[in-house]
Design a protein around this nucleic acid. Sequence first.
DNA 1: GTGTTCAGTGAACGCTGTTCACAAAGTGTC
DNA 2: GACACTTTGTGAACAGCGTTCACTGAACAC
Lengths: 211, 211
Amino acid sequence: MGISERKERQRAELRERILKAAREMVVREGFGALSMRKLAEAIEYAPATLYLHFENRDEIARELSVRGFQQLLEYLAPAARVEEPMERLTAAARAYVRFGLEQPETYRLIFMEDPKLTTALFGEGKEDAGAKAFAFLVQPLEELKAAGRLAADADTRQLAEVFWAGVHGIVSLKLTCPGFQGTEADVLASTLVTTFFHGLPGMKEAQRPSG
Amino acid sequence: MGISERKERQRAELRERILKAAREMVVREGFGALSMRKLAEAIEYAPATLYLHFENRDEIARELSVRGFQQLLEYLAPAARVEEPMERLTAAARAYVRFGLEQPETYRLIFMEDPKLTTALFGEGKEDAGAKAFAFLVQPLEELKAAGRLAADADTRQLAEVFWAGVHGIVSLKLTCPGFQGTEADVLASTLVTTFFHGLPGMKEAQRPSG
DNA sequence: GTGTTCAGTGAACGCTGTTCACAAAGTGTC
DNA sequence: GACACTTTGTGAACAGCGTTCACTGAACAC
């Protein structure tokens, strides 16, 4: 039965063509500029045909978002090979920021558009890509703890959340108010890493909270 | 000439009615749900009338954004009265996060929607409200530096940017993927403040970078 | 009373996402 | 080869959107 397989293949090919065209539109002009009609025109089909392959515009967005997240993981992958935990965390932060700046519209789509898109990536994804990315942050902290370089009662997950908020903040501020932040993003990332590890420069140990 | 004054007043009143209705719609259903036609219906005028008072939808958004930012400044105001710089920074962070969570759609509009909106608030505003808010972060750091509690060569502006990125990251992640971050926002804010000041708990001074 | 100004409007233009009855082509069965 | 069925694709339509524009009607100045 090669026929049904061929049909399946053709179907998948068209689906890919749609997604490719959609991605190009999003990357070039942003998610807001992604219109079903323009998308249909780009692949030379009638608008209604799109609905044979996707439930609606949201499903296309979701798929683009999932793939964008995979791309983020690819950016992060080299950092995983860094041995020293603090350096690894630093490398991950740099990679994350680089992804955000090099793929701004993709980043917007994933992390700044619709909560439904972002939530879909965490907790319920088939392989839970979100958790996988989050582990990039938690694990180095766990290793630091195991090595006695981080307080034994430190909440690594919570610290990772704060760290993530930091890099996400850097990227999203750069994307949303590009003019304001005078400092370049990678410099900000470096400063974030340094303060996250060591606090403010020149801050005396005696100033630490008593508790 | 009371006539033209009355006309002027009526004009201003209608403008306010429009903005009030617009704000309600945004607060209730988000900026995306703000439609000129529904807005016109809400104030019981024809859609075209809106264009006698605003150039277009964007101008309404800009005005709402400016007012939302004023509201943020009001949230921050009490923190300004805290004397101790570190405590003041902490209070500012808490107030900022509280604003973001209590006025999520307003926060989205100001900081996560259109770059044009956000940029308009910084650098060119008549009173540069953006710079005013940013001073909330820079000044405490300057005071710390003056008191010798922060390295003399520390770039306070850059540190403030990183700090801001941190709180913005906490808020915007909470708004965009509410389910994921397990930790409550105010706890994250506390942790952010602590690490920003003192680094990771249990991190030995000897681990500081050599440079 | 006359001329002018101006807030307000209905209708239209060109978009948008989405649906649905319908056509056409390909496939399986007799 | 003829028929039925499934899949693929479509044109037209619906309801909504932001925005524009010729036009009305009332209030004003003289």
